[in-house]
């Protein structure tokens, strides 16, 4: 009997929490299909007709094409830089014994404790001095710099599980060190690379504060910045804003639904090993 009460309570809790979690998303979707006057008359009702007007308007007015492209540039540059630099460093640091290797690794790991907030002011100035301010590509490079430490940590741990004999046999076959890395080692690092790509994609795609500090012209804005600007500009036209919110979330939600299993795996691994 008590067991059944517990099961009932468990379901009740889960359903209540599910309502809490879905509520804002549901409300945003429903109201994004209403016309402005319809929304003001009744927020809670279903839309009278299914019209995509708000969406086409939001797409044009919020310059989604341009900002979407900028976001892709930032994300791709950042991820490419992080994966390339950290896999090289993480692999070699893990394989080399000795003081130098240990010290370098500790330096990278220790820096994971630096909060972004502590360096943001000087980092912005540094980016400006290097001419990386004001371009999505430059932002991607800066992000790569901020992301290498954690990726090195994850690669370092993963490489320990790959037998050393592989390096040696490649060496025997007359493969140079660099060729051996890209031909033989890197393909074996794909599982952890996937984790690193997922974690960084979520960060880069959705980041706000660093892009705000580094991008000044609205033509360079990422999706999140564009939405932020759009929100300020059309603050009373909720139906339009909601459509822009939904629209800008679609890419990441689609990617998530396709790769859900691996993403969840990646996030758990990243957190537990990080």
């Amino acid at each position: 009997m008590t067991r059944r009460i517990y099961t009932g309570l468990a379901w009740l809790f889960l359903l209540l929490l599910a309502v809490y979690f879905l509520f804002p998303i549901y409300m945003a979707i429903v109201n994004s299909f209403k016309t402005q006057s319809e929304l003001y008359k009744s927020v809670l009702s279903w839309p009278k007709s299914l019209s995509f007007d708000n969406y086409t308007q939001a797409f044009k007015k919020a310059n989604m094409m341009r900002s979407g492209l900028n976001t892709i540039i930032v994300t791709a540059t950042g991820i490419f830089g992080i994966v390339l630099c950290s896999s090289l460093a993480g692999y070699k640091l893990s394989r080399t014994r000795g003081k130098l290797s240990n010290v370098l690794f500790m330096l990278f790991v220790a820096s994971m404790l630096i909060p972004f907030q502590t360096i943001m002011v000087t980092l912005t100035k540094m980016a400006k001095d290097l001419g990386l301010q004001g371009s999505p590509f430059g932002l991607g490079v800066v992000c790569a710099g901020l992301g290498v430490n954690m990726a090195i940590f994850l690669y370092h741990g993963f490489v320990k599980g790959i037998p050393r004999e592989l390096d040696e046999s490649a060496h025997m076959d007359g493969c140079g060190e660099w060729r051996a890395f890209f031909k033989i080692i890197f393909p074996l690092l794909l599982p952890i690379t996937f984790t690193i790509v997922v974690l960084n994609m979520l960060w880069l795609w959705n980041d706000f504060l660093l892009p705000v500090l580094l991008l000044n012209d609205f033509r360079d804005y990422t999706l999140v910045l564009t939405i932020n600007m759009f929100f300020g500009k059309y603050s009373r036209e909720w139906s339009l804003i909601l459509a822009s919110l939904i629209l800008s979330s679609i890419p990441i939600v689609v990617i998530f639904s396709i790769f859900q299993r691996w993403i969840i795996q990646g996030i758990t691994d990243g957190a537990v090993k990080g």
Partner: peptide
């Protein structure tokens, strides 16, 4: 030679790390 090759592999990441994390931290 091992130390040299270690440094070469680590160099790209280290430069990024130095410019965007360490120097801003010290400057700050």
């Amino acid at each position: 030679r091992a130390a040299f090759s270690l440094l070469l592999f680590v160099l790209p990441a280290f430069i990024l790390y130095l410019i965007f994390l360490v120097i801003p931290m010290f400057q700050g």
